[in-house]
């Protein structure tokens, strides 16, 4: 059982025009991942692209796990072409996952765009406790809702153009929710992954209201194991590595 391992691609299928779902089956017993952790994937055996790519754990399966990824650059364009049966090298699970809420706490889970890839397994783990806020610019960027159905307590979908769910951002939805915060939600804990402006705004709200918020951050990463010091974020205690001390940080620690 090693965090440096090989896995076979079981499936690598599109979920829309620019997102794929990759299903992997490790050749050996895998180290059990926790929601919020990530993997480094070897995209090519050649020299370009050179570095592994970091991807969140999307979901554990019976004999492996899945990664949901957006096709964005050179690395992911190569990854989408990899066929079933291909063996790839990985590192992981890496980093620290989301700390789970206490029994009496309500989990407000917020995903912006591909941020859903990081929080999906958390929602599953929370066994119908999560209030899931899921936002994207357009309706066709909202997916996996069928797979999630029945796994949350409540799902609030938001799109900028209103083509799916409510019109507006998840931040608007969160504000409304906290404004009416009925009652049933006595002690909320926020979990969020998404674009930086979204996270910054959620952080501001959480700090202002004294709510604990755990944010999953991204930075350019080379090694994924804490050696290169490339993927740092500024915190109250100085620069911290996203790959090692993160990727999940408490909102109050981050210096934006």
């Amino acid at each position: 059982m090693s965090r440096s391992f090989k896995a076979e691609i079981r499936e690598n299928r599109p979920v829309n025009s620019n997102h794929n779902l990759l299903t992997l089956a490790p050749l050996d017993i895998m180290v059990e991942p926790r929601p919020g952790q990530f993997y480094m994937l070897e995209i090519s055996r050649g020299l370009d692209p050179l570095l592994k790519r970091a991807f969140s754990l999307f979901r554990r399966t019976s004999d492996g796990f899945q990664i949901l990824y957006r096709i964005k650059g050179k690395g992911t364009s190569i990854l989408r072409e990899l066929k079933e049966g291909t063996l790839i090298s990985l590192l992981g699970p890496l980093g620290n996952g989301y700390p789970l809420p206490a029994e009496n706490q309500a989990a407000l889970v917020i995903a912006g765009g591909i941020g859903i890839a990081s929080v999906f397994s958390l929602v599953e783990k929370l066994e119908k406790k999560a209030h899931l806020f899921y936002g994207a610019r357009l309706g066709d960027e909202i997916f996996m809702t069928d797979e999630m159905s029945g796994r949350y307590r409540e799902l609030i979908v938001c799109t900028d153009d209103g083509s799916c769910g409510r019109k507006g951002t998840v931040v608007d939805a969160l504000n409304d929710f906290l404004g009416h915060a009925s009652l049933e939600v006595r002690e909320p804990v926020i979990y969020a992954c998404g674009p930086q402006p979204m996270l910054r705004e959620i952080s501001r709200i959480a700090v202002a209201k004294g709510i604990t918020a755990y944010l999953s951050l991204e930075e350019h990463m080379a090694c994924g194991i804490g050696a290169c010091l490339g993927c740092v974020v500024k915190t109250k205690d100085g620069y911290r590595r996203v790959c090692k001390e993160g990727p999940v940080f408490e909102a109050g620690e981050i210096v934006w």
């Binding site: 370009d48 050179l50 570095l51 350019h220 080379a222 010091l229 993927c231 740092v232 620069y239």
Partner: peptide, 19 residues
């Protein structure tokens, strides 16, 4: 303390760092 991020970027068959 080192430099502010982004500190690294991949380039063709290599990488740039400014840790």
């Amino acid at each position: 303390e080192g430099n502010p991020p982004p500190r690294i970027v991949e380039t063709a068959a290599g990488m740039l760092n400014a840790i």
